[in-house]
């Protein structure tokens, strides 16, 4: 890997990825909707590690711009990590379509739109790694977050299909299903410490998975078993749980 594209680069997970990749002398393309925030990051990584960092404006929700956005990247990345996502206000989304649509777009539709473009390029170059940060929330719909959850479920299925399609072109796809991550997304929500990963942990697991060509990772291993149990609960019981 010489150059990695990070989509949604203002997230703390993305910043940790940028730090760790730069420390391995990998050049970065940082894409985010609030690019001006990334200038200090660019300066820092350039000074510390001597890597080339490019900062580019990118809005996952502006699907019309995606082909153009990718077209203008020079050089093209050898790997792309799709980090952006949006938890949103679930209760609001029940009554407000805009909120609901924003959740679906940020976690699914927008991701599909940009990864389609990247996948085609990687496929034709017969090389590359695509990483999607999905979520355990996509494994089973719950009354408290099924807009977000269903969008992540869609994203997980998309990544699985993409992996299946691209394997013959030597392009690898990694699905990341973190449990809780200590970031602003869950600020104010009390989560069990042992089940909550730090952004740095997520970043190092992701990089390891990219190198080792893992297919699906959970970051904290406990989540694999928790989700196994959750998937096994029969629907007639599950539907009555307050989750």
């Amino acid at each position: 890997m010489k150059t990695v594209l990070i989509l949604g680069a203002t997230s703390e997970v993305a910043l940790a990825l940028a730090d760790q990749l730069a420390a391995k002398s990998i050049n970065l393309i940082l894409a985010a909707r609030q690019v001006e925030k990334l200038n200090p990051v660019k300066a820092d990584l350039t000074i510390r590690f001597g890597v080339t960092v490019t900062v580019v404006a990118f809005d996952a929700a502006n699907m019309n711009s995606h082909a153009d956005f990718y077209q203008h990247l020079d050089p093209k990345p050898d790997a792309a990590i799709c980090v952006f996502g949006f938890l949103g206000d679930h209760d609001k989304a029940k009554v407000n379509w805009d909120e609901c649509a924003t959740i679906l777009t940020a976690n699914y539709v927008g991701a599909v739109s940009i990864l389609n473009v990247i996948a085609n390029d990687f496929e034709s170059r017969k090389a590359g790694v695509i990483v999607g940060i999905s979520s355990v929330a996509g494994e089973r719909g719950r009354q408290s977050n099924y807009f977000y959850g269903s969008a992540k479920a869609g994203f997980t299925a998309y990544l699985s299909g993409l992996r299946n399609r691209l394997v013959k072109s030597a392009v690898h796809v990694v699905t990341v299903k973190p449990g809780f991550i200590r970031t602003k997304m869950i600020e104010g929500i009390a989560t069990p410490g042992l089940l909550t990963a730090k952004p740095e942990q997520v970043a190092s697991s992701v990089i390891k998975a990219m190198v080792a060509k893992r297919n699906v990772i959970y970051v904290l291993p406990a989540w694999r078993w928790i989700m196994l149990v959750i998937r096994c609960i029969p629907e007639f019981i599950f539907k009555k749980l307050r989750l």
Partner: peptide
């Protein structure tokens, strides 16, 4: 502690 970027050297 998270506001720790080097801006120029």
């Amino acid at each position: 502690l998270k506001f720790n970027r080097i801006l120029n050297f």
